[in-house]
Simulated assay, not measured.
Amino acid sequence: MMLAKKNNSKKRIQVNIDKDLVDNAEEILDKLGLNTTTALTMFYKKIVATDGIPFDLQLTKEQKANANLEDALKAVPQQNIKNNKEAEKVLFDDEN
């Protein structure tokens, strides 16, 4: 995030955000009768009023499950299988 002073009472904020995300958010804001500047001002005021981020920052159940799966997969030994015979040995050999 890049902050540049405009004057003593205002500060210009410049950020790079995914275009699709911005378009979707602006469509919702428009339906609410808000523009981006007003919405961000409201967000900043809420940060100050609550002395923190004004919403929970938590993973969804799906994100938690994906993270757990990724962690579990990291623990699985990886083998380089070159042909069907090697694949059958890995899959069906009781010693693996």
Rank of each mutant, 00 (worst) to 15 (best):
K74E: 11
Y44K: 15
M2E: 14
D51R: 15
E70A: 13
F92A: 08
D93W: 04
N96M: 11
L57I: 14
N84L: 14
K11F: 03
A4G: 10
A39D: 02
T36G: 03
E62H: 06
N68A: 13
Q58I: 15
F92D: 02
N16L: 13
D94P: 11
D18R: 13
Q63M: 04
T36V: 04
P54S: 07
N8V: 07
L73M: 13
L34Y: 08
T38Q: 07
P77F: 09
T41C: 02
K5R: 14
E95I: 04
D71F: 12
F92P: 01
P77L: 05
T60R: 02
A87G: 05
E27M: 14
L91D: 08
N96R: 08
D30K: 06
I28R: 06
E62L: 05
L57F: 08
E88P: 07
K46N: 13
K89A: 15
N66L: 10
K11E: 01
V22Y: 10
D30P: 00
T37E: 15
E62V: 07
V15N: 05
V76W: 05
I47E: 08
E88I: 15
L59D: 12
I81F: 09
N35M: 06
D23H: 03
P77Y: 06
D51M: 02
N96A: 03
Q58D: 12
I47G: 02
K64V: 14
I53E: 09
I17P: 01
Q63D: 13
I53Q: 02
T36I: 09
D94C: 00
V48Y: 01
T37W: 00
L21T: 13
N68D: 15
I53S: 06
N83P: 04
L91G: 04
I13F: 15
A75P: 00
P54W: 12
K89L: 12
Q79G: 00
N68C: 09
V48H: 03
V22C: 11
E62N: 11
Q63T: 10
P77C: 04
Q14G: 00
L21K: 10
A87F: 14
N16W: 12
V90I: 13
A39S: 10
K11G: 01
P77K: 14
T38F: 00
L59A: 08
D20F: 00
A4W: 03
G52I: 11
D23I: 05
I28K: 05
K89C: 03
L57T: 12
K74C: 02
E27K: 15
F92Q: 06
K74T: 07
L69M: 11
D20L: 09
K6L: 12
L57C: 11
N24I: 14
L73A: 10
I53P: 02
N80F: 10
N68I: 12
N16A: 08
A72K: 13
A65D: 01
S9M: 07
Q79E: 02
K74G: 02
K89F: 12
Q63W: 03
N83A: 00
A39T: 01
D30N: 09
E86M: 09
D93Y: 03
T41R: 14
N35H: 08
A72F: 04
N80W: 12
V76T: 11
R12M: 05
G33W: 10
D56W: 01
K31A: 08
K61G: 00
T50R: 03
K31L: 08
V15M: 13
